[in-house]
Design a protein around this nucleic acid. Structure first.
Length: 271
DNA sequence: CAGCAAATAT
DNA sequence: GATATTTGCT
């Protein structure tokens, strides 16, 4: 029996796919922009062809191959792939809303504050809508008196459930005076590419970092159960905060396995 | 433009 | 089937 164990272990080891064999997380898929540029989305259903514009008044009849090298970003008015709201991204969203206050938490502002490259107002609006519904639902059933039903947290909404909801967000009919408007650390002005949602294997945007390659258990981070080694190469906050708020000092924290680490990442002092 | 409900797409 | 996006309306 012991031998068996070492046996399968050996085999297991042997059959372990090499990193090179694994899906090259950042590659493979045709570059999203390229794909959309060519309008060659995934072979899906019969996508209706909406009035294909007569292209450019080219003298010839073939399209201009410079389409890609055109310099101008084609990815501007074309349909982007579905954005996938990963917990981290959602966290940013929540934090942004939390710090803006319900009153200023409108799609436009949120989007700007998040300063996530590639995120559009529509994205936020859509997500915000669902998020609000989620909050409402929660309140609704949390008032259950004598309820013997509420047993823990039924994984209702996967995404929202795993987000450290700031606590308040409950729309209290509180028309209190708004506190000082926090200046917007317009990080969006940075030409730096922060975390740009990238297209996944199909056409879904997913986050570049935080990609878990493990095939063990479930790929999805349903609940924090996987104890991964928090090793972030690009995680340096060298400067011991001295009082100045650096927009680039984002410390995207990883939630602890079972300890809800509610750490606000924005330089907030409000509330 | 923001918010919402429903439909639609992936 | 779950989600995100879009649509229509206010």
């Amino acid at each position: 029996m012991k031998e068996d164990e070492s046996n399968w272990f050996s085999k297991w080891e042997d059959e372990l796919p090499l990193p090179e064999d694994l899906t090259p997380l950042s590659q493979t898929l045709i570059t999203p922009d390229l794909a959309i540029a060519f309008d060659i989305r995934t072979p899906n259903h019969h996508q209706k062809q909406p009035t294909p514009p007569p292209s450019q008044p080219n003298s010839g009849e073939f399209d201009s191959p410079e389409l890609v090298a055109g310099g101008d970003e084609p990815a501007r008015t074309l349909k982007r792939p579905r954005l996938v709201w990963t917990p981290q991204l959602h966290k940013r969203f929540v934090d942004a809303v939390a710090h803006l206050g319900i009153k200023n938490a409108v799609p436009k502002t949120i989007m700007q504050l998040m300063s996530v490259d590639g995120l559009t107002r529509e994205n936020v609006a859509s997500h915000l809508q669902k998020y609000r519904l989620y909050l409402k639902r929660m309140q609704g059933l949390s008032s259950g008196s004598g309820g013997s039903g509420s047993a823990g947290d039924p994984v209702t909404d996967h995404l929202f459930a795993s987000s450290p909801v700031p606590a308040h967000f409950l729309h209290q009919g509180r028309s209190n005076s708004d506190h000082f408007m926090s200046y917007v650390p317009v990080a969006a002005l940075q030409h730096h590419q922060q975390m740009g949602p990238v297209v996944g294997n199909h056409g879904q945007l997913q986050q570049p970092r935080y990609g878990q390659i493990g095939h063990f258990g479930s790929q999805r981070n349903e609940h924090p159960f996987v104890n991964r080694q928090n090793q972030q190469p690009v995680h340096r906050v060298g400067t011991p905060v001295h009082g100045s708020v650096a927009p680039a000092a984002y410390v995207d924290d990883l939630e602890s396995a079972n300890g809800r680490k509610v750490l606000t990442l924005f330089p907030n002092g409000d509330d």
